[in-house]
Amino acid sequence: MSLDVVRPGALTTVQDLGRPGHAHLGVPRSGALDPYAHRLANLLTGNPPEAATLETTVDGTALRAVTAVTVAVTGAPCPVRIDGRPAAWGAAVRVPAGSVLDVGRAVSGVRSYVAVRGGIDAEPVLGSRATDLLSGLGPAPLSAGLTLRIGAPRAHSTGADALPTTAPPAELVLPLRLGPRDGWFSAEAVQGLARARYRVSSASNRIGLRTEGPPLHRTTHTELPSEGMVLGAVQVPPDGLPVVFLADHPVTGGYPVLGVVPEAHLAAAAQAVPGTPVIFRPLHQRT
């Protein structure tokens, strides 16, 4: 079973739950930026959560089914068409052999997920099929003419019916657990953070959500020796504009981390389109 790539889209990658546990070797965690949408797409097609899906960026993708397949599109809402005829988003749909599944441009949000019953069967690297754009591990992003192999479906598995999903955020509110380097910033910068208004920058990618807004003033100007980074860390480079680390973030970094956004809020960050207002809400536990 396989799918041929007709239109790769701006950036479509293979993603799963990533490859945690290798950070000490310099290997990012990677994996789906919106893990809820990834899991939901798998659930709808009867796949286990670790099955690989496709993560699109803004303008979707188009795939020709070489053999009949069952697919589900979740994440950023978008028109779904099979040979030009409208099909359901957020539900399992059958694509007959030879037909083209077109995952359209996101109506809201950034990243749609396409699960195929059986999962995308790329070669695993360190136990994961995820494309890591920082270090180049995993399969290359989709390109026109590429053939994607599909794995064997689980025996006796049936997909769930359509499930409720949440809409991408009109305003991104990110709780922030302060530390470990909040002491490197002025008290005014930290206290004023909740009132400061940022916007999602168009320079955001799988490595980090970049922001535009008032620069945060540092009071410590010594160079920070590189230290370990975590998912959701809000690193502040010399320009003072916070960067929220997403799945492909580097395992170490040399700029101070003001605080950490809890993992549960990062899917919304991954779906926030450029220009979306961002509000950091510090959880006051200054160290």
């Binding site: 945690p20 546990g21 290798h22 950070a23 000490h24 020796p225 590189s226 230290e227 370990g228 980074m229 975590v230 395992v251 170490t252």
Partner: peptide
């Protein structure tokens, strides 16, 4: 733990 990440002057213990 999930990750133990030594660096220049720190050890990160994650998970």
């Amino acid at each position: 733990v999930r990750d133990i990440v030594p660096a220049a002057r720190t050890v990160l213990i994650d998970g």
